[in-house]
Structures are given as structure tokens and as C-alpha cells.
């Protein structure tokens, strides 16, 4: 039951994109269509599961002080593997995702889960956490991709919706639409799952850089407020 909880919490209760507000860059950039959203979700999930397993297995071997660089090397290794696999077998998707595929390295979700979960838990739990978080990420991306593609282009995963096609609002697939749809989705999650998601600000808890920056930016903010 506990294992199932670890698996499921990433999908709704701690959805990385809509509740924890991690990985906003790919969530905005690759959701212009359903296909690129699915591709991004699967690529990130694969990296997340593998890096969670390896980091969890190495958690006693890696000294605390150099753990962040070690995590980055592990994650960058898996990202390169995914990049090469995609370039070989799905060249169209590789071109579609472009630089964002390489940028999985700095996706806050992956470093964040390594820092928050994998380094404190066993291999199986970490793998389940990776699967759950990856699924949550993919689902959120597909949801956003569907909304933007249906409203913005009148198609869904390339299938033409004849009823909607003439009323397509192309700005929704452009950059401003990304911000707008994302903002409205978070507001909806706040509205209907209120109490579950209280996080309305970026804080050090969810920030994977917190360990590296020693809460520098947060502390200066607090200092300024107390002045």
C-alpha cells in the first residue's frame, strides 16, 4: 500500500508541474502540440527513472559535499543516451524537441527528485517515485498540449477536428498562449484541489538549487523584509 502511495502521489497530489511547479520550461515550450508533449514526457520520464535508481544506489557512496555535481554527471549521462536513441530511431521528434531535449539535464524535476527523494530512499521506492513523477509530468504536459493544440490549431495529435478548425485561435499555440494556459490550469488545480496544493510561491523546499545556494536568495529576501 505504501508503495502504491509513492507511485500515485506524483500523479495528482504532488504533480510536479501543476502542484510543485517544477520543470516549467519544458511544460511551456514543448506543449504546442500533443505529439511533442508526449515525446518530451517520455524522454524526461526515462531519464528520471534511470537517474533515480542510480542515485539511490549510490547514495551511501557519494560524499555529501560533492553530491550535486555527481547527480549532474549521472543525469547528463542518461540525457545523452536518450538523445542518441531518439536521434537514431525518431529523428522527426528529435528535431521537433531540439534544444529542449538536451535541457532535460537542468530540468528541476529530475535534480529535485534526486535531492528530495532518491538520496534518502531505497532503490525500489526511488524507481517507483521516478515512475509516478514521470507519469505526472507526462500527463500534465499532454493535458496542456491537448488544450493548446485543440484551441490553437483545431487538431489533436495531428488529427483534424473539422468542427473546430475554422475557429482556431493561433495565438494559443504561440508563446503567450503557453503562459496563459499554464496560469489558468494552475488556478483550476488551486480551485478544485484546494488544501492539497497550498504552494502558490516558489520556495526553497521545492528548489533543487537550495543546497547549492545555501538559501542565499531566499535569505536576502527575508533580510530585506525585516529591515
Amino acid at each position: 500500500m505504501k508503495k502504491l502511495g509513492i507511485l500515485l502521489k506524483g500523479i495528482i497530489k504532488e504533480n510536479p508541474v501543476l502542484v510543485l511547479l517544477l520543470g516549467t520550461c519544458p511544460a511551456l515550450a514543448t506543449t504546442t502540440g500533443v505529439i511533442s508533449a508526449v515525446a518530451m514526457g517520455i524522454a524526461a520520464t526515462a531519464v528520471l527513472i534511470c537517474s533515480n535508481i542510480v542515485i539511490s544506489a549510490l547514495r551511501k557512496a557519494v560524499p555529501d559535499k560533492v553530491r550535486i555535481p555527481c547527480y549532474i554527471v549521472v543525469i547528463a549521462g542518461f540525457v545523452s543516451v536518450v538523445q542518441m536513441l531518439m536521434q537514431a530511431y525518431f529523428p522527426d521528434l528529435y528535431d521537433m524537441l531540439g534544444v529542449y531535449l538536451a535541457l532535460i539535464v537542468v530540468n528541476c524535476i529530475i535534480l529535485g527528485r534526486a535531492e528530495m527523494f532518491a538520496r534518502k530512499n531505497g532503490i525500489i521506492d526511488s524507481a517507483l517515485d521516478g515512475i509516478g513523477m514521470g507519469l505526472g509530468f507526462t500527463l500534465a504536459l499532454v493535458l496542456m498540449g491537448s488544450i493548446r493544440e485543440v484551441i490553437g490549431a483545431g487538431t489533436w495529435a495531428g488529427i483534424e477536428l473539422t468542427a473546430l478548425k475554422p475557429y482556431a485561435i493561433s495565438i494559443v499555440t504561440a508563446a503567450p498562449g503557453g503562459f496563459l494556459v499554464f496560469g489558468c490550469l494552475i488556478a483550476l488545480v488551486n480551485k478544485f484541489f484546494s488544501g492539497k496544493s497550498k504552494k502558490t510561491e516558489f520556495s526553497c523546499e521545492g528548489c533543487p538549487n537550495a543546497a547549492a545556494c545555501n538559501k542565499a536568495s531566499c535569505e536576502t529576501e527575508e533580510k530585506e523584509e525585516t529591515k
Binding site: 511547479l21 503567450p176 498562449g177 503557453g178 503562459f179 496563459l180 499554464f182 496560469g183 489558468c184 494552475i186 488556478a187 488551486n190 502558490t200 510561491e201 516558489f202
Partner: peptide, 9 residues
């Protein structure tokens, strides 16, 4: 965050 994103849009 939501209203910030709408403003960013």
C-alpha cells in the same frame, strides 16, 4: 503564480 503567468502572457 497563476496571475503572474497570465501577466507574463
Amino acid at each position: 503564480i497563476p496571475i503572474t503567468l497570465v501577466a507574463a502572457s
